[in-house]
C-alpha cells in the first residue's frame, strides 16, 4: 500500500470506486462542513475537498479535510499551484499527513482573474506535473524537493485531474501520460456528458496502457436546469454537453428538470461503468451535495464496500 487510504484499498481490490466532492464554505462556519459531511457519509469512498476553487477564498482544504476525518469520512485534499510555493506546499503536506489525510489531488489551479481577488499575485512556482513529482518523491524517496531527507515522510495516494474534452485531444492524452510518469496513482476526469467522446478518449488511454498504470475515475455531475446545461456547454473550458442532453433537459420542463438531471447523471454512470479501464466515478455536486446519496443509490452503487 502506498498510503493505506480507503480509496486505495477499494481500487486495488478491484471494486468500482465512488468519490464525491465537498466545497468548503466561504466563511469560518464549521457547521456547514459537518452538515455536508453528514449527507455524504456512507455514499462515497472518499470525498474531494476543493482548494479555493475558481480562485475564491474558502475554508482551507486541509483544515476541512481534518474536520471530515473527525466525522469518520475519508477526504481527498486538493492542492493547487496558484497560491503556494514549494516551501508552503511541502509544509502544508507534512501537516496534512500528520492530521491523517491520505489522498491528495494535485492541480494547477484556476487563474485568479475570475476569483474574488483578481488583483492578487499568483505563485505557480511549480506546475501540476512538478507538484506530482515532488509529492511522489516525498513519499517514495523520502526527500524534500531540494533533496534533503525526510525522517517521517507524508504518504499520499496521489491523484490528478484530466480533461478528456479539451483540444487538442492528442495533447490531452499526452498530458495524462506525463502525469502518470510524474507519479499519479489515480485520475479524476472533467465531467462527462458526452459518453461517446469519453469512450474514444478511453480508447487512446488504453492504447497507451495508461489504464493499467493508474485508476481512472470518470467525473459526473447532475444538471439542475437547462440553463446550467447551456452555460456549461458554452462557458466552461473543457466541457462537452451534447445537444441530446440539452434536449432531454428541455423536454421535461422546468418542474422536472432536477429529477431529469439526476436521471441523466445515473445514466452516464451506468454507461461509463461499462467502458473498459474505468475504475470508478467521481460525483461532483458542488452546493448540491444532498443529491449525491440518491444518485449513488440509483446507480446501484450502495452500500459502499468495506475493506479492512
Amino acid at each position: 500500500m502506498k498510503s493505506g487510504s480507503n480509496l486505495e484499498k477499494i481500487l486495488s481490490a478491484g471494486k468500482f470506486a465512488v468519490t464525491a466532492e465537498l466545497g468548503p464554505p466561504k466563511s469560518a462556519d464549521a457547521e456547514v462542513v459537518y452538515k455536508k459531511a453528514d449527507i455524504l457519509k456512507g455514499c462515497a469512498d472518499a470525498v474531494n475537498i476543493t482548494d479555493c476553487q475558481t480562485a475564491i477564498v474558502r475554508m482551507s482544504s486541509i483544515a476541512t479535510a481534518a474536520m471530515l476525518i473527525s466525522k469518520g469520512l475519508e477526504p481527498i485534499a486538493q492542492m493547487t499551484c496558484r497560491d503556494r510555493n514549494r516551501i508552503a506546499i511541502q509544509s502544508d503536506l507534512l501537516g496534512a499527513s500528520a492530521l491523517g489525510v491520505k489522498n491528495l489531488l494535485c492541480l494547477t489551479g484556476d487563474h485568479q482573474k475570475f476569483g474574488n481577488h483578481p488583483q492578487s499575485k499568483n505563485v505557480f512556482d511549480l506546475d501540476s506535473i512538478q507538484l506530482i513529482k515532488m509529492v511522489k518523491d516525498m513519499r517514495d524517496e523520502k526527500v524534500f524537493q531540494c533533496g534533503e531527507e525526510i525522517k517521517v515522510e507524508p504518504r499520499f495516494f496521489i491523484g490528478a485531474a484530466e480533461s478528456p474534452f479539451a483540444d487538442p485531444v492528442e495533447l490531452r492524452v499526452l498530458m495524462l501520460a506525463k502525469k502518470v510518469t510524474a507519479g499519479i496513482d489515480f485520475v479524476q476526469t472533467q465531467i462527462v456528458y458526452n459518453v461517446e467522446k469519453f469512450a474514444k478518449w478511453m480508447e487512446l488511454v488504453r492504447e497507451l496502457g495508461l489504464d493499467k498504470k493508474v485508476y481512472i475515475l470518470a467525473g459526473v455531475a447532475p444538471l439542475k436546469s437547462v440553463g446550467m446545461a447551456r452555460y456549461m456547454k458554452n462557458n466552461v473550458p473543457g466541457m462537452d454537453v451534447p445537444d441530446e442532453v440539452i434536449n432531454r433537459m428541455t423536454a421535461v420542463g422546468k418542474e422536472r428538470a432536477k429529477e431529469e438531471g439526476i436521471n441523466i447523471c445515473v445514466d452516464v454512470i451506468n454507461q461509463v461503468k461499462e467502458i473498459k479501464g474505468v475504475a470508478g466515478v467521481h460525483v461532483m455536486a458542488i452546493e448540491w451535495e444532498e443529491v449525491v446519496p440518491e444518485i449513488v443509490e440509483k446507480a446501484g452503487l450502495l452500500p459502499r464496500p468495506k475493506i479492512g
Partner: peptide
Amino acid sequence: CSKSLLNGPCGGAQDGKCEIDPEVDCGWQ
C-alpha cells in the same frame, strides 16, 4: 502562458485561447 507552466497546458485552454481571456492565445497551444 498565464501560469508560467513548464510542462504543457492546463485544462483551461479552449479553441487555442487562454482561460483568462478569449482574446489571449494559449501559450502552450
